[in-house]
Amino acid sequence: MQKVKAVISREKDAPVEVTTINVPDPGPGEALVKILTCGVCQTDLHYKRGGVGDNFPYLLGHEASGVVEAVGDGVSDVEPGDHVILNWRAVCGECRACKKGQPQYCFDTHNAEQKMTLEDGTELEAALGIGAFAEKTLVAAGQCTKIEGDLDTDQYAAVGLLGCGITAGIGAAINTGQVARGESVAVIGCGGVGTAAVAGAALAGATKIIAVDIDDDKLATAQSLGATHTVNSSSRDAVEAIRELTGGYGADLVIDAVGIAKTFEQAFQARDLAGRVVLVGVPDPGTTLQMPLDEVFSRGGSIKSAWYGDTLPSRDFPMLVDQYLLGRLDLDAFVSEKIGLGDIEPAFEKMTQGKVLRSVVEVAEA
């Protein structure tokens, strides 16, 4: 058992706090990881606000890079000293999705069996089974994806973001949306996930990439990461603009990275006949949508939601790290600021105001 500093959400909507927690030694199939960096993600804010559940207190943080310190019995894929990216899709290999050869949809992903606790023994619910706003955390070994190649200390802040939001956006374009070379793509909402979808479309070879947002600064960032055109939808109708930029037809793929009824309707109307719509923005609980079913039928194509960008960490993380090291994927651009464990509450405020793509907590040196 180890005592470490960590950030918890004790009750709904209360400010997060830095406190001491107990982290057990790893049991069978588990790994103890020293955290290097962890991004501040919208999902952590959902936990704080009670949008994920009411199993308070929560140990927040999940977009992390780290170093394996110890492993339990039966662990062979990682060993102490390995630098890793943490993920929340540690596939089980036994569920119906895994048995169909679709482990990226695993319905029974693994987490650590043991619980981390407060000093008084109160069990903590780790965000997405990770809990990485901490000096150390305990995870299932399958949640560790080994980082190959030599990285500078500063680069871990960037690659750690692959653990959630950035991969969700890139995967929405490449995996779920299956962007092909020469296609047109529109992305509605250019926060961290939407901007990552823009970068993913560029990486996949799309030749027309239209970024849509109401913030000119976000649009400028999207343009720097691959958008060929931008549309400020506070002053211009997004659907008309996308159609105009695609010869009147609409885009081959439209990605909704916001997740509200209005933006989903825009995505649906802005795609070409037989085009694709991908929803990667997370809707608030209870969000509803009304659409004419005859239009769904007559427009053809497909409507999909992107679960974690349909990402398989063991397949996708190494590929994306390689693209980063080759200079084809600018992960550094997503790191807006580097902060400490005590700065997470202000980081939530900056994220809510749209002032950052990602604040990244630096916990330890590589």
Rank of each mutant, 00 (worst) to 15 (best):
T221H: 05
S298F: 15
Q178M: 09
N22D: 10
A364C: 12
F107L: 15
L162G: 10
S9T: 00
C144E: 05
D120E: 09
V321L: 03
T230E: 04
A204P: 15
G81K: 04
T153A: 13
Y105K: 13
D25V: 11
T207P: 04
M319S: 06
F133W: 13
K99E: 11
L329W: 00
A158W: 08
H46T: 07
S235G: 15
V280A: 02
K355Q: 14
F268C: 08
N232L: 03
H83V: 08
D294Y: 13
E79Q: 14
R358Q: 09
P15F: 13
D216G: 09
L331M: 01
D44Y: 04
V321I: 15
L219H: 01
L289F: 11
L118F: 06
E125G: 00
I170A: 07
E17Q: 15
V139I: 02
P283E: 08
V335I: 05
A158M: 00
G189Y: 03
C190D: 01
T19Q: 07
R96A: 10
E362H: 12
P283L: 00
D343F: 04
E362N: 14
I21E: 02
V78H: 06
D256N: 07
V75H: 11
E337I: 07
V33S: 08
D216V: 06
R271D: 05
P313E: 03
F133R: 08
